[in-house]
Design a protein around this nucleic acid. Sequence first.
RNA 1: GGGGGAUUAGCUCAGUUGGUUAGAGCACUUGCUUGACAUGCAAGGGGUCACUGGUUCGAGUCCAGUAUCUCCCA
Length: 893
Amino acid sequence: MDKHFNPAKIEAKWYEFWEKTGQFKADPEQPGEPYCIVIPPPNVTGILHMGHALNNTVQDVLARWRRMQGRNVLWLPGTDHAGIATQNVVEKALGTDGKSRQDLGREAFIDRVWQWRFQYGDTIVNQLKKLGCSCDWSRERFTMDEGLSRAVAEVFCSLYEEDLVYRGNYIVNWSPRCGTALADDESEHEPNEGHLWHVRYPVAGQPDAFVEIATTRPETLPGDTAVAVNPKDERYTHLHGKYVILPLSNREIPVVVDDYVERDFGTGVVKITPAHDPNDFFVGQRHDLPALNIMNDDGTMNEHSGYDGLDRFECRKKIVEDLEKGGFIVRVEPYTNSVGHCYRCDTVIEPRLSKQWFVRMQPLAKPAMEAVRSGRVKFTPKRYENVYFTWMENIRDWCISRQIWWGHRIPVYTCTCGHEWATPATPEECPKCQNSSEEISQETDVLDTWFSSWLWPFSTLGWPEKDSRDLKFYYPTSDLVTAPDIIFFWVARMIMAGCKFMNEPPFSNVVIHGVVRDSEGRKMSKSLGNSIDPLDIISKYSADSLRFSLMQITAPGVDLHVDMGKFEIGRNFATKIWNAARFMMMHAEKVPFFDWQDVAANGIKLEPSILRDDDKHILYACSKTIETVTSSLGKYRFQDAALAIYDFIWANFCDWYLEYAKGNLYGGDDVRLRQTMLILADVFGKALRLLHPFMPFITEELWHAMGFGDDEESIMRAPWPKPYSASQNSKWSVSEEIYNFVESKREMITAGRALRADSNLPPSQEITFAVNAISSKVQNKMQEDLEYIKKALRAGSIEFSSEPLSGFPFTTCALGAIGIPLEGLVDVEAEKIRISEEINKLTGFLKTVEAKLDNETFLSKAPQKIIDQQKARREELLADIERQKKILELSDK
RNA sequence: GGGGGAUUAGCUCAGUUGGUUAGAGCACUUGCUUGACAUGCAAGGGGUCACUGGUUCGAGUCCAGUAUCUCCCA
C-alpha cells in the first residue's frame, strides 16, 4: 500500500462496482421500511457548482446512512428542462450561425433543443456520479419525459375544470430580452442608482396652475391616464375632481384620490400608468382608468407613445430632453430604488399588461399551510417555517404562462366555433360542434418550468398512473434537501401540489442547508470569478475530501464560507485513516488466521482477564461515538456527526489507542497481540462504517483491502454499527468510570510531556519522572500500565512517591502530581513564583465557588446537583491549595 | 419600509433544555527523520463571548434596546 491515499486510482473503480452490482437500485418488493429522497432536479443546462456539491452530499449521506440502517432506500434523480435557460442556450448557438428560432419555426426549433439535450444534457448527471451520489439512475427522470408531461397536462386540465386556472389581462413581469412573462419571484430586485425627476403637469382650465409629480420612469409618461393624491393630504384637496394636462401629449387626465399614495414620497402626487406599473395597475382598476400600452414586447416604444420604435432607455433620455425644452422639469435629484431584473438574463424587468394564465393560489395554500402547522411536514431549521407561513399567507396568484417554445405547451384548444376547452390529449374534433381538427388551434404559450417541478415528488414515481408500485410504496417521500432560496419557487408549491393531487404532503422533512460562499462571504458566481469548481477539488483532493470537508463545516441552515484550504481537512483525514489501516494490516499478518471478515460479521469475543484500562477506554469511546453520530444524523446535524467521527478516529483511536496498542503489537505476547488486533479490527471496522456515508470511496477501498467483506459485497450494505451491548460492557467491565480514569491518566501524561518541553529536555533523553498519586488505588492502577506510561512519556523510569512532590518542577492533576526530579534543574525562585501564581489562580476560583455557597438564595434555589458540584469543587480546591502551600513551605527550607 | 439571521481566538465556525476555569480546525510559536502517517507527532500562546440595560441564586446561552453585517420580501 502507498504511503498516501491515491484517490484517482479507486474512485472510478468503486463507482462502477456500485452501479454494476446494483447497489443503488431500489426495489419496492424488497424488505425494509421505505426511505425516499427526490433530488432537487438541477437544470439540464447546469454544470456542477459548490451548491450542488453540498446539496447532493447531504442527500447522499442520508441515503447511504439509511441504507445501512436497513431501510428500503430510493434516491430518485433527474433534471428539469429549464424552459427559458435552455431556450436561451440553444438560441445563442443558433445566433452564431446568424439564425433565429423564428427562422427555424417552432417544431424545428424544438427538435434542435432536444438534440442539444441529448448531446449535453447529461453533463451534470455525470458530475454527480463523480461526487459519489448513490442515486438510482435506472429511475432517472426529466421534466419533459412522456410520463412527466402527462402529469403536467393532467394537472393543468384538472385545475382548468375546477376553475383554478384562469386567463386574465394582468400586469406581469416582462423580460424584454427573453420575450416572456416571469413569475413574481423570478424577478429579482436589485438597487438601481437612478434619478427622481420632478415634473410639472398643468392643471386643466387654470392657466399658470401646476401640480408637481415625482417619477423615476419619465418614459412611461405618455401612458399616464391619471395622477393621484392621498385623500388625507390637505395640500391637494383643491385638486379633487379636477383634471391635469399631460405634458407632451396634451391629453387631459383626471386627478384621482387613493390611499396607495404616500404623502411623504416626492411631492405627494404620483402619475398613474396602469399598463406599465403594478401598483398603478391596481389603482387603475379601482378607479376604472383606461390602461394605455405604450411599449412593444421587445422593450421599444410603440405608436401610442409618440416615440415609436425608440428603445425604452433611449426614450427616457429623449423625453427628459423634451420635457426640459417645454419647461416642465422642476428639478432632478439622484435616487436609488429597487428595480426588478430577470433571473435568467438580468435585463431590467418591464411591467407589462398582457393576457396570461394564472393559478388561483389561495385554495391550494390552505391545506398546504395546515400540513406544516400540524407537523406533518417539518422544516429544519424550524425558523424556515415562518418564512413559509409568511409567504403563504400573502400568496398571490401564480403566473404560469411563458411566451417561449421550449416547455409544456398549454393544453387548451379553441375551435373556430368559439368553444374553448382543456384536454391532455390532442383533440380530433371539437366536442361542441364536432368540427374537425383543422378548425382547432392550440394555445401557443408554454408552462412555467416550475409547473412541472411542483409535481416532481409524485410525477417521478409514476403518477398519474394510479397503481404505480413505486408511488404506492415510496410516496410520501421522507426528506427533501434544499437551499433556502427555492422555498417559494419550489418547496411550498410541491407541498400544495402534494396536498391537492395526492391528498398527502409530498415529504415529512424539509432540510434546509446554507448557501456556499467564498471566504469573503460573497455568493459564488461566474461574474465575480470567485467560484470554486467542485471537480477541481475532486481531482486535486478527492471526492471524499470534498464531501467530508463540506459536511465538517456545515451547520444547519448557516451559510458556508469556503476556500481551498478547507478541503485539506478532508484530504489530511483520508491520509490519516489510510495510514492507520496500513499499520493495522501490517500487524495482522503476524496473527495466524486473523479473520477481519469474521470480526465484521460476528463481532469479537474478548478475554476479560487480559483487558486493560486503555482497551476498555476505546471500547467505551467507540460506543459513545456510534451514539453521537447516529443521533446527530437523525437531527440532520451533519457537522456534529462528522466532527464526532473525525475526533474519534484521529484524536482517540490514532493518537492514543494505536500508540498504546503498539506495546502489545510489538510485545511478543501472542495472546495479547491477538486480542489487541481483535479490538483494533472491530473498532476500526465500526469507524469505517460510521464514516462511509461521508467518505464512501476510501471506506469501500479499505473495507475490501483489509478484508472486512467479500469481494462482491459493498460496505454500503454493511449494517450500521451499534454500541456494544450492556452484557458485553459488563463482561468486559467497560464503564464510564474507567473511561474517565483513562482520560485522567492521559491528562497526567500530557502534563509530564509539558514539563519535559518546558525544561528543554530533548525528547530522546530517557528521563525519570516522579509521581505522587492521590491514592494507593490509583498508584496500583498506574503500575499495571507502567510500560505504556513510560513509553508515552519516553521515560527511563517512574518513581512513585508517597510524599508530596517538591524541589523540582511538577504539575498537579486529577490523579496526583507528576514531576521531573532532577537536581539543579530548576530555578528555585522561578519555581516559587510559579507555585504562588498557581495558588493565586486557585484561590480566585475558590472565591467564586465560596461566594456561591455563602449565598443563601443560591442554596435555597439552585438544584441540589449543582450545589453538590460546587461543594465538591470547594473541597478539591481547598486540598489543592493546601498541597501547593505545603510545597512552597518545603522549598523555603 | 416589513421580516429572518448573524456578531464567540488572527481566520472559519461549534457551544442542543441557563449551571465547574468558553471549545475545534486553520494560521502562529517551540521542539521532533518517535519502528502507520511531516497530508505527520508532541507541547504552547491567543477570547472583557459586538455594546447597553433587564430577568435570575447564576447569562456566551433568556428578554428589551443600540450598532454593524447579511439574506428574504415589498
